[in-house]
Each structure stands twice: as C-alpha cells, then as structure tokens.
C-alpha cells in the first residue's frame, strides 16, 4: 500500500478528502497567482531591461482603481479561504454522538491507549473501520500532540487537562501515529501505528480483553480509594450522587453553574475544594499525586457508565448488531452533552 516515495499522504478518514480538496484547490489557485507574478517579474525585467535608450523609466501614475482592485480582490479571496477552512475545521472538531470512546495518555516518550472494554496498548491503537472513534486524552508530563497523518487530524495533549479528538477511518490497514509537539530527547521515537480493522476482526481482537471493561476497572479504583464511603449513591450522603452526573449542569456553592464534563470531574477528584457542589461541605481530601493518569481515565469511564438514578425512557442510540462493545460511554455521550470541543479550564 505504501509507496517508497510518496508525494501525497494516504487518505484514510472521512475528513481527509475535504482537507485534501481544500489543499489542492489552494495549491492550484495560489500556484496560478504566483506563476503570474513570476512571469510578470521576468517579462518586465527582460522587456524593460536597461539599455542606452532606456536609461530613464517612464513615469506612470498608479491608477487608484488598480490599487483598490488588488487590495480588495485578494481580501475577498482570502476571506473565502477562511470560510472554507473554518467549515472543514468544524467537521474535524465536532465528534459525532455515537463515537466509540478510547482513552489515551501521552508521556515521555510513549502513547498509552485504553479501550472501553479494558484492553490496553502502547504505541499501537486498534480501531474498527467506518466507525467514529473519539479519543479523550491527557499527558502525564509535558505537552505532546497526537497526530494521525493519514486521517488529517491532530490535537495537542496537555498535562492535567483533557483534550478530545475524533476520526472515522475509511480504510483498513496500518498507519502512522506521530507525536507532533516537541517533547524532549526521544520525541522522534514517540511514534506508533494505528491499525484499522474490519469490524469482525476487531471483534476478535477485542475478545482478548483481560481485565474486564474500563468502567469495571474504574469501579475497582473507586473502591480502592474508598470513594464509596461518601459517594454512596444516596441523596443524603456526604458526597453528591455520581450516577448520571456526567454532562449534567452542577450548581456550585459559589452560585455559578458548571457543566460536569471531563475536566470538571478531573478537577473534582484532584482538587476537590476548587468547586464545591451546592449543598455539600468541603470535606473531600485532595487526590492530587495519588491517582495516576490511567486510573483517572478509568474512574472517568466508570462515572460515565453509571446510569442516572431515575431511569426515564430515553431513546438510546440504536445498537448495531455487530457491536456488543457499544460502549457505555457512548450512551452517556447523549446529544445533550456533546459539547463541540473540550474547553476545560480555559480562561
């Protein structure tokens, strides 16, 4: 599949085509304009070269219309490029609602991936073809950047904050994963492969899940840190009810209302005093430095998997027959909660 000397990257995701169309259009348009400029420069340089009868240039008063034309017309073209680019960017940024959830951790110098079903991989990521995949990720140390060149998507992986990205592969096969943000000595070794499989093979690969689903691993972490002593699930307990919390709006003691997204949950575990849910005491100890990034992701998967206490008949995404692995996370990512991009603690 891979040529030894490619001049163009493989197109292997749903957005790759639209990125490439914009790219090629720009190559053609800007190439043509540049060519015109070069031709003009050389034509003038030769035609009006200095000769004894041409020691003096002919003075030309610049016509205002011409000046305005080459100010306004490029301006309009540039704004057109902006609109097109922003349109493609929207597609790249907004994950579909039914995406398969994968969690990633970047550290010097490896990528760790965790699947909802419990599989863990290093520097390799298995995903099914023709199915949107959403990656929630954080870094354990410095800023990294997860890049899938064949999918045309990239996102910086920041320490202590969750970032998300998504793609939908359209081709089976093996493709590069690169770290794009310089991260130290072995930056160029922080690479790997994404293996896109057809759904049946993917099922077989998943069948080898050794430690139970990510959510169930999260439940174990939850018990290990004795979270359940306060978060009993009872409305009168010392800690808030966590089931159905993810994606909901939370009223704080400060009077503000925040959405309980990944970054809110993360902060509430690591620095619980920062935002206190209304009606509760600031008694939870901090877990900063005690819970690893991977355990945090497990806890997150667990919290997302908890169903709301009052189960209303809410239409769920239709389960496709092939996907017993339709993650619980996917259910939690209901339309109401699909925020466009992960804002986190952005100022």
């Amino acid at each position: 599949m891979k040529s030894d000397f490619p001049l163009f990257p493989e197109q292997a995701s749903t957005v790759a085509g639209s990125v490439d169309t914009l790219y090629i259009t720009l190559v053609v348009v800007t190439g043509a304009v540049s060519l015109l400029i070069w031709i003009a420069v050389f034509y003038f340089a030769i035609k009006y070269r200095r000769r004894p009868d041409n020691e003096l240039a002919q003075e030309i008063e610049p016509p205002m219309a011409l000046e305005l034309a080459w100010t306004i017309i490029p301006g309009i073209i540039f704004i057109g490029i902006f609109v097109w680019g922003a349109w493609v960017f929207f597609r790249i940024q907004r994950p579909p609602d039914n995406a398969l959830e994968v969690y990633a951790t970047g550290r010097q110098w490896m990528w760790k991936f965790q699947h909802a079903t419990g599989q863990r991989e290093i520097n390799t990521l298995h995903v099914p073809v023709n199915r949107p995949v959403k990656i929630t990720m954080a870094s354990e140390d410095v800023v990294h950047s997860l890049w899938f060149p064949s999918f045309r998507v990239k996102r910086d992986v920041l320490p202590s904050r969750y970032a998300t990205m998504w793609f939908q592969a359209t081709k089976t096969g093996q493709f590069h994963i690169f770290c794009a943000e310089y991260c130290g000595t072995e930056h160029s070794k922080m690479i790997g492969s994404v293996i896109v499989m057809d759904p049946r093979e993917y099922q077989q690969w998943l069948a080898g899940g050794p430690e139970g689903s990510l959510a169930s691993q999260g439940e174990r972490v939850f018990q290990k840190f004795a979270c359940n002593t306060c978060h009993t699930g009872d409305a009168t307990a010392r800690g808030p009810v966590l089931a159905g919390l993810y994606g909901k709006q939370v009223m704080l003691t400060s009077g503000n209302v925040v959405v309980a997204d990944e970054n809110y949950i993360r902060e509430s575990i690591l620095n619980p005093q920062a935002k206190i849910a209304s009606g509760f005491q600031a008694i939870m100890p901090t877990f900063q430095g005690q819970v690893s990034e991977e355990d945090l992701l497990k806890l997150l998967a667990y919290l997302k998997s908890l169903t709301p206490p009052q189960p209303q008949s809410r239409p769920l995404a239709p389960e496709s027959p092939a996907s017993l692995i339709q993650s619980r996370g996917a259910r939690a990512t209901s339309p109401a909660t699909a925020s466009p991009v992960n804002q986190g603690n952005q100022p």
């Binding site: 914009l22 490029i81 680019g85 960017f89 950047s145 990239k154």
Partner: peptide, 16 residues
C-alpha cells in the same frame, strides 16, 4: 503557504 496555515482545516494537519 501562510494562507494554507491560516485556513483552519489545513492547519490541523500541517501544524508542527
């Protein structure tokens, strides 16, 4: 080529 980079959709791919 700066226009390519300023166009959001392409920048995601070619950034860094």
């Amino acid at each position: 080529t700066g226009l390519f980079l300023g166009a959001l959709g392409i920048d995601v791919h070619v950034h860094d």
